[in-house]
Design a protein around this nucleic acid. Sequence first.
DNA 1: GCAAATTTTGACCGATTGGACAAACGTTAG
DNA 2: CTAACGTTTGTCCAATCGGTCAAAATTTGC
Lengths: 210, 210
Amino acid sequence: MDSATRRPRTRIQQEKRELILEAALEVFSARGFRGATVDQIAEAAGMSKPNLLYYFRSKEDIHVTLMRRLLDTWLAPLRDLDDIGDPMTELRSYIRRKLEMARDFPRESRLFANEILQGAPRIMPILEGDMKALVDEKVEVIRGWMRAGKIARTDPYHLIFSIWATTQHYADFDVQVRAVLGPDRGGEGRFEDAARFLEQLFLNGLRPTA
Amino acid sequence: MDSATRRPRTRIQQEKRELILEAALEVFSARGFRGATVDQIAEAAGMSKPNLLYYFRSKEDIHVTLMRRLLDTWLAPLRDLDDIGDPMTELRSYIRRKLEMARDFPRESRLFANEILQGAPRIMPILEGDMKALVDEKVEVIRGWMRAGKIARTDPYHLIFSIWATTQHYADFDVQVRAVLGPDRGGEGRFEDAARFLEQLFLNGLRPTA
DNA sequence: GCAAATTTTGACCGATTGGACAAACGTTAG
DNA sequence: CTAACGTTTGTCCAATCGGTCAAAATTTGC
């Protein structure tokens, strides 16, 4: 039986696969796909390399599984951007949630950034498929807000890009942010400061000029 | 004689080193430090591997040289941010120049992003030294504008971060941007659209609330 | 308790990598 | 021509890597 190909049946397989994915997230996000070695992942997972390769066919297999799972949770905040509430409140919530994810899941953000930087060789179909479809859908929501005069008329695509860029920056470029802020201002409070700034920038910058 | 350690004397050495650095920028920015091989760089430079290693002691040596040179040009736009002009005009110029750099020198941007993502193992001293000093200096300029009521009071550090993040996003996450925009909107015009959006966002978002 | 199935590992392999080295090649000055 | 110097490359090496395999250890079903 090839236990790695089928959905794991036993609880041990489920747990071990979870353990490996957690270890792989740690190693991949810190060193990139090519910089990470199977041995490092195995050690981080507390098992031998052949044992790890008993649960996953290959290094690539781990990465693909990790990436597929990641994208789902990564796009969740955008999925929740909804038409029902007040536009400004919706946008503020979205920015805040994205910033919280950069703070609480920096490894996921860096793993994703690494993949995109390398040209997204493994997730390009998803970018052009589900992700584009989701963005297109939310762009229409934003366009509705603009037509209703609730927020300033501007390019919704680049609005989304700029929210992604500014929030993920605090995960992907964390070492730079902390180096520039220095020991006194670079503590945990930097996320509070960032939240305040981004809220002001976007809410002020998108206030309708009516 | 170790011609690689001393400053190159002959014109040939100067030219070959330049050729290698150009090739290394291409390869490093596309595949990261660990993903790039000396053979690939040598082939891109049109020479054999031992020949390349005649001009640079090691792969690391190439990367360090490249990185040191890059940082100088990379921070040039911020250096030019000056106190003399109108604040809003200064900020607009800065944003526009950074965006032009993302468009014209995406390899440099990706090389830098890669280094930071890996924890900046090779340039941390520069980040904490020259770069922090430069940012601190420009933060004071921006604070002056705020005290004079020329722009809204907000956190200057995070203002700079957000300009970095939004502009470099169009180089570092280029494949994602183009995948989401699709074939029709993802052409060269995307930089024009981005410039318009960012100008509106920042200039509107920073308008003094007096 | 025991046999079958599952899990774990030590040993190993072929491929790739960064780098060393000496011999060969080219160029220039006398 | 030729000696000296700078340049180029074929060959090689030790280390590292992803992955295999058969055997051992453990767990599970009865």
